[in-house]
Design a protein around this nucleic acid. Structure first.
Lengths: 335, 335
DNA sequence: ATGAAAGCGCTAACAG
DNA sequence: CTGTTAGCGCTTTCAT
């Protein structure tokens, strides 16, 4: 193996304590010894052992992050923000792909516990009691991203889903649309499901537009396929619709794909607005108008909050992140 | 803090050695003691400390993975494969976003060394001498993904870029195209640049089609924007072109976007084939025909190779992964 | 089958 | 300013 702090101490004729002090720049050594030690470190190519350090300091400078699907554009953008920030703050991140599987999630939580990570960021899934319990056991700070829990007092960072959905729908209305359908995710999803539907309804209601339950199609996810499959249903049943609000960009793009197959021109014959502002939104044809979630920043903020909790030992406030409409080319101005 | 092995030992009236043996199922204890100990472990909610274990065993069950851009669809697919496999094999993965920055990469390499990761996977970038040196210092197995080094003897897993480009071009030819342009990445890129251009040229040449250097446009990356920006140049200069081979799906989609702006119908007026088979390929309108790289499997294989090297201590063979055409809707059959 | 004891490489009192 | 000495929690000879 490589040289240890002992080797350095010996060669520099000092104690390991002194070397340690220098390494952690704690007070207690002369300029000369520091120089001498640094030189030896250089010569030996000494690299401190973070594992040993972690054993005594009880800090591993590592955080764990759980994603339902690391390879999704959604998750990877958040990961990017977390990683950049954690790195800046001197921590590494261990990624965990839960695959939306309870068993697997629990296994990961346990793993993270054994690895003694300093904290964990839990994203996009609903926090079950089981998760919460073991998270509490771990005795480490936790922050939720793109999810929240009403039952458990954990800080979260997310946009206001209802509000964002309201904004999206309102945008459609302000562009002259009144026959607006919605492609929703899972009805039962307490985070990305129901609230967005509520926001949609609220906007219609506030603008005096009647709400028709048949205008909402519920799916079992937020993917391209769900959008693609559900669009024909609305195209067929609701021919009078001029605009649709999709609860995710992937669904929006799926819907556009289906519309294309059906020979429906977007935005000429039908307007569509998405939700998320993933990379794909600007790459679609035509580019997708959408309500943006600041995913990168959400990751960034989460990492910072975690760090803050670590540093101060106290808890922090949740953060409602701002959302905003990104106007591109899929919504037509009516009238 | 939580209970330690000592607490377990004491409460079970055995030595820590025995508990350790049971935990690692090594021989040397009766069925009765095992049961007794397991019960205590349960009662105490004992969780072994992987940090302490790592200190003595010199294995952290953690690997480091470097990506130029974690949030790209390309990287995240590879990450997914690595993560799933590493997890199956009992390891965690620390992700490092190098941002294509030499300094940052070096910092990460150093960090991984301090953290005593068991191995590292280096992806998509060219391996400089500096990287190689410190990687060697680390004394841990390394595998390259989607890149390779002719100077240094490290195992890699990638497709045969020249061959894959050949296949893509050949597909166009077999569909009756003879006026074929190419949108390439950086000319100097020894992995994804030159080889793909060579494959393209070789295919033309093998089929007796004259090669025009002007039919190749070089860009400074593989992104959507590069494709979008360079397409107009070929549309303008080479009106006779009926098909284009883009060296990445993102570029292909960018090109399609530009074509759309220009009112050029795909595939009716122009065919296009991409490279990678990212998720976006099936989400584009129309769905993109492309030559697929098995990204997930590449990650999977890399993780397995790394594990193999760790297990046996010996080196392994590189893997050329199979590529294949995914026929979708952007290539028109001529004549 | 089981225990005692020596570390792994580092930090952190406590002495000087 | 600097060294000595305990550990951190675990594994691993070496005895018994």
């Amino acid at each position: 193996m490589g040289p240890t702090i002992k080797d350095v101490a010996k060669k520099a004729n000092v104690s390991t304590a002194t070397v340690s002090r220098i390494l952690n720049d704690l007070p207690g050594y002369s300029k000369e010894t520091k120089e001498k030690v640094m030189k030896v470190i250089e010569e030996l190519g000494y690299q401190p052992n973070a594992v040993a350090r972690g054993l005594v300091s009880k800090r591993t400078q590592t955080i764990g992050v759980l994603f339902p699907d690391v390879s999704s554009m959604f998750s990877s953008e958040i990961l990017n923000g977390i990683e950049d920030t954690a790195h800046e703050l001197g921590s590494s991140v261990i990624v965990c792909n839960t695959d939306r599987d309870g068993k697997r999630t629990m296994k990961y939580l346990q793993l993270l516990q054994e690895k003694r990570v300093d904290g964990v960021i839990f994203t996009s899934e609903v926090l079950t009691e089981e998760y919460y319990e073991t998270l509490m056991d771990m005795q480490v700070p936790v922050v939720l991203v793109s999810t929240a829990s009403y039952r458990y007092p954990l800080p979260y960072v997310k946009v206001d889903d209802k509000h964002a959905a309201y904004t999206a729908t309102e945008y459609l209305i302000q562009n002259g649309h009144t026959q607006i359908a919605m492609i929703s995710g899972r009805k039962e999803d307490p985070i990305a499901g129901a609230p967005r539907v509520e926001g949609y309804k609220q906007a219609l209601s506030d603008y005096g537009i009647p709400i028709h339950e048949e205008s909402i199609v519920y799916t079992d996810g937020f993917g391209f396929q769900q959008g693609q499959e559900s669009f024909p249903r609305i195209a067929e049943k609701l021919p009078e619709v001029t605009a649709v609000f999709a609860a995710s960009d992937e669904m929006a793009v799926g819907a556009m794909s289906a519309a294309y197959q059906l020979g429906i021109q977007i935005p000429d014959q039908l307007s569509i607005i998405g939700y998320d502002n993933l990379k794909i939104a600007e790459m679609s044809i035509p580019p997708l108008t959408t309500v943006a979630q600041p995913l990168y920043q959400m990751g960034e903020v989460a990492a910072k909050l975690l760090n803050e909790m670590l540093r101060t030992g106290s808890s922090v406030e949740s953060r409602i992140m701002p959302h905003h409409i990104v106007e591109r080319c899929t919504v037509k101005r009516m009238k």
